[in-house]
Computed example of a mutant assay.
Amino acid sequence: MVADLLLQVPIVDMPVADLLLLLIAAFGGGAFGAALGALPAFCFTGFAVLAAEGARLLSGGSDALDAPGILGAIAFGPVFGPHVAFAGGVAAAAYAARKEGVMYEPEDGDYHVAKDIAYALGTRPDVLAVGGIFGMIGALGTAISGALALPWDPIAIMVVVSAVLARLAFGYPIIGAGDRDILDMSPFERGEERSPPEGRSDVATDGGTQTATRLAVEPWLPHQYEWPNVAAIGLVTGLLGGWIALATGSPFLAFGISAALLTFLNLGVENIPVTHHMTLPASTAALAFAADPTGMTQVAAIAIAGVFGVYGALVGELVQRIFYAHSDTHFDPPAAAIVVATFTIVVLAIVGVFPSTSWVPNLGLV
């Protein structure tokens, strides 16, 4: 199912012309994601998911109104697929931060400029090319993961892999904590800054230097990093994600809502939570537990969704502390959390706790 949904045709059966078509489209999608900026592109992923799932629901659950595939070809394909447009935008930002005059340096300079994924990178050919190349990498990797039925979200895994490749390609550290406690966010709370080398006015970073002052620790979301608060929003959105999945039969609708709501974050509305790594695992777990729930089974399914909402939230926070807060480029905590959560669903299905894995590939073991 996942190959048909996310990729249209499994790569092992794909004619050479179709594979070239996919890669060419993915180059365009990655470059477009770089032009728009990674976060604006991902917001449109959410809108495309809403359009696709709305069409399916209006057709009475049929996929007829989704032809030829808004979900697979647009939302999760070469146009706005996170492995293409978002990942391409992240990689392009990492590249552009190395080039003088490409990215605007914020006046406060609190964070490394390469982390500004809300910034539209415009039309510079070399920046677009980087986005396009990483879009192709994302499309190819996702196609391979889906065709092999590897036991996780094939899109999310390539968002993670792409972020690592961008750091390696452009000379950024994978973690970058140095001698700091990797899980400690208190330097951020105290406003501690990185000190410039003696005799210099610029600030040492993990991947070079920049002239603006920079915080010693840079949490992914300054308004969403305390463990109890993260768990609380995970529970709330997990329950809602489970309810939406049970009411509509869609594991992706709540994800689309979460992604589309990030438009407000991109526009500067303060304290907007990021929740797609909570709602997607929650919806998926609810449907994996009970595809057609009634009565107490439905109650159990929504409770499980709440647990997976918390799980996705806490894994995302752990990932941000290890891979985001101390390094220089964007490393997406939600994508990593979705990989871990979907893999967990597969494991639970293999051992018999869940009767299915919903849409998640499972190596044919379930």
Rank of each mutant, 00 (worst) to 15 (best):
T209M: 12
D153K: 02
R98L: 10
A259L: 06
A149T: 00
H223Q: 04
A254R: 05
G33V: 01
A67K: 13
F289P: 13
L240R: 07
R214T: 01
L239H: 02
P15Y: 14
F86Y: 05
V160F: 11
N229Q: 01
G109L: 11
A300P: 05
S358D: 10
D153R: 03
V347L: 15
L221Y: 04
S201G: 10
M278W: 01
G238V: 14
E226H: 04
P361K: 02
D126M: 09
G241I: 13
V90T: 02
F76G: 01
A216Y: 08
M136C: 08
G207I: 10
F42W: 14
I233W: 08
L183T: 13
A48D: 00
L21I: 01
T294G: 11
A41V: 07
V159C: 05
L365Y: 08
G72R: 07
L71E: 00
I304R: 10
I24N: 02
L39H: 12
G242V: 10
F331S: 07
S195I: 14
L22N: 04
L280T: 03
A291C: 06
V12R: 12
V307D: 03
H276T: 04
G316E: 09
A75F: 00
V49F: 00
V203C: 04
M278G: 00
L348V: 05
D110T: 06
I133L: 15
V164T: 08
T211H: 01
L39Y: 09
P125H: 06
E100R: 12
Y104G: 02
L262A: 13
V12S: 14
A335V: 08
A41Q: 06
E270L: 03
C43T: 04
G81H: 06
A51E: 01
V274K: 04
G309D: 04
V203A: 07
D126A: 11
G295W: 09
G256C: 00
A96M: 15
G88Y: 07
L215W: 15
A97E: 15
M278T: 05
Y119M: 03
P281E: 08
L168M: 11
M103K: 14
D18G: 07
V84E: 01
I74P: 00
P151G: 06
T297W: 00
V236H: 05
R321L: 08
Y119E: 07
G249P: 14
P222V: 11
V127A: 03
G132E: 08
